[in-house]
Design a protein around this nucleic acid. Structure first.
Lengths: 402, 402
DNA sequence: AAGATATTGTTCGCAGCACGAACTTTATCC
DNA sequence: GGATAAAGTTCGTGCTGCGAACAATATCTT
């Protein structure tokens, strides 16, 4: 039960009822399509007449389409309804430090096209290049309308101003991406942190119907956490919730890029595995601690070496896995989510990493928590799928009431 | 924006509109009372006629009452409305290991009476004694109706079955409190973990209007965390969210009562300060580690000794404060709440403890988080106020929609 | 072959609700 | 004593879901 916020509430009118029920209807079609009006009546509990009226409106507004006619042992044949994938296009953008991926999706979250560009260093160049590529994409895939552009960012977005406050891997600080893009594209733009994007992707994937508490952990050079609680993204005050990657795990670890000592991500990120590997090499050469001399092997190479049976790489990965599990135990103990999704290249080696992580969690967690831990296939592009969810949410999410 | 849960949703009907607007109205009266219909029109944005209709219904249902007539420089005098405190009584129960406190409150959350009993060891005895005392209280304070009984428990309540799963300080496991109490009292009973109760108390206190992200930390023999995110209690899967007290803070700490090593509460609870004090005494006597020989000084005595300038007690409290801050830094970094409330006897010494806690947080937290840290006056009985909020929620909370 | 039965989907009158204009009530100001 | 102002009420309108009756379209039974 939510408290009504008297600083920003919304009274209801007659139309509110239709809005609520339309959204329920859209979600039911999304889940069960193709589906007849009669089935929708049963799923929703509304009257047949009401379902007819609502679907008529949704068809007129081109959200739904009538499709094939079904067959039943008796009685009039049902007309199936499904989402009108022609109606609306959605553009998704996944910004990462090196590469930015763009995609066009339809209403059913199917990708129609995809391309990548190098992420420009300068944020103004980025806006220029991105908007021209998006315009090209929209022209190449004509739809009756484009509902919006969702953007996943490796940084923090202020929830009030919607400005990008901080993006260490890009080197951008306090930049307004939304306004120039919206005026160039004439389409609403949604920004979200990458971990939040992954959490949204999972929430809207349909794989966890009924799971209202869901945590996504992105593991790359740093660690990000996106939280969905009670079916809703938790952004925290001014949008900075989820920085569990910078929770102190040890008083005497190496310094983190955030300036503090012993953050979780210093021990459990890809960069940590790279460091472990470099250290074990240096030790053999007697070069302990001389950071500058360490040859930095990319994390992908470490995974490859592990596959080839390399001992040092395997030990480095194992160490990273142990620490990853330690931090995940914190999330499970504290948040008790139904589902915890892991995102990142480390999932490619989950056969090895998973058991070590589970061991850490079992050792540290309080309850035999029911949390399911799910590694995401990197090919599934969780960040990008999340950007589509950002836009879909506006039409399929629960209406803002009271 | 919330995702609609297709496993349990609620369609809207015409009456839904009235339900939504009535609840907004009730909240506006609660916040601004005494308040005229004309003011409610301005606050709500509804039409004058609509406000009249809604208030008429609420008065007929005895939620509101007309009060005095106001004075204005011009025009017809407004009739003030206020909550009808006679209408409904609420019983709140704060169960702690030694003492259980009962209270009767009115709709405006004012306490009318209060009493304490020793908490019986046996849960069946507890139910018997509690229900007879509650019936006495309700008879002594007749109201047109009793809306419910809210109970704060030092343990975990399963969110689905509403059974008390685990209460270490009481020694009860998997017990159904709700059913027997409800059948004895013929009034709905709400159960909640003590930290959650404190979070609800703060949420509904009216002190933080607009703050949707709020964390309560209870510090006693253990540490509990109650989280409100997006204006709503976060219970997690099966109701076990918030066990941050059992997050591992150090690999090599003493064993926790949960069986793990180095949990936060082992370092930062009242029991920790007691242990620190005992250890420092033992050290002087050369009795390191011989637990059995340590005289256990109650935490209250340590606070008293600190007041009297005792050095060992002060050092013990300082150490506890440092570790308390370390854990709070985790919560602030990870959850970024608007408000973080501290509950427990330790707040009595906040003049001393506060700066140490702030220092720990400043050293460990990532951002200059905007979180306000607020110690609660123990006299304010946060757990008990939360029990009233549990019941109030049902009428003043946002309606369950979609 | 014709009526019985089953199922889908539509039509239509009704009741609940918010809206908004007109109206009533009750003051003070000039 | 009329103008002005504000609070609160009344009433007709439009939107919405409800539910019963009805139309459409099948198969099953006799």
């Amino acid at each position: 039960m939510r408290k009504i916020n008297l600083n920003s509430f919304q009274v209801a009118s007659s139309e509110t009822v239709r809005d609520i029920n339309s959204r329920i209807m859209l979600n039911l079609v999304r889940k069960h399509q193709p589906v007849s009006r009669a089935d929708l009546t049963r799923y929703s509990g509304l009257q047949r007449s009401t379902v007819s009226a609502i679907t008529e409106k949704l068809i007129a507004d081109r959200w739904l389409k009538e499709g094939a006619v079904g067959n039943l042992p008796r009685g009039r044949k049902p007309t199936f309804l499904h989402l009108n994938s022609e109606r609306a296009g959605i553009v998704g953008v996944d910004v990462q430090s090196a590469v930015t991926t763009l995609a066009v999706a339809d209403m059913s979250s199917r990708f129609l096209a995809q391309e990548s560009i190098q992420t420009p260093q300068n944020p103004n160049d980025f806006v220029a290049r991105l908007s021209s590529r998006i315009l090209d994409l929209m022209r190449a895939h004509p739809k009756s309308s484009y509902e919006g552009v969702g953007i996943s960012l490796p940084g923090r977005v202020d929830s009030a101003s919607q400005r990008l406050i901080f993006a260490p891997s890009l080197g951008w600080t306090d930049f307004d991406l939304k306004t120039p893009l919206e005026s160039a594209l004439e389409v609403p733009v949604e920004l979200e942190n990458a971990a939040n994007s992954c959490a949204l992707a999972e929430l809207w994937s349909g794989r966890h119907e009924g799971a209202g508490n869901l945590v996504a952990v992105t593991v790359s050079d740093g660690i990000g956490v996106g939280m969905v609680m009670n079916g809703q993204l938790v952004r925290g005050s001014s949008g900075v919730a989820g920085e569990f990657g910078h929770v102190t795990q040890s008083q005497d670890g190496p310094e983190c890029r955030c300036g503090n000592i012993g953050c979780w991500e210093v021990f459990a990120s890809n960069a940590a595995a790279v460091r472990y590997y470099a250290e074990s090499s240096s030790v053999r050469k007697g070069e302990i601690g001389s950071k500058s001399n360490m040859a930095s092997v990319p994390f992908g190479d470490i995974l490859r070496l592990v596959d080839q049976g390399d001992v040092k790489a395997t030990l480095a990965l194992n160490k990273m896995a142990k620490h990853l599990g330690d931090g995940l135990a914190m999330l499970i103990t504290g948040l008790a989510p139904d589902v915890l999704v892991i995102v990142g290249d480390v999932t490619r080696a989950w056969e090895r990493v998973g058991p070590i992580v589970s061991e850490s969690i079992k050792r540290r967690s309080l309850t035999n928590a029911v949390t399911r831990i799910i590694p995401t296939d990197p090919e599934a592009q969780p960040r990008l799928r999340g950007t589509v969810a950002m836009v879909l949410q506006k039409h399929f999410g629960a209406p803002v009431i009271a």
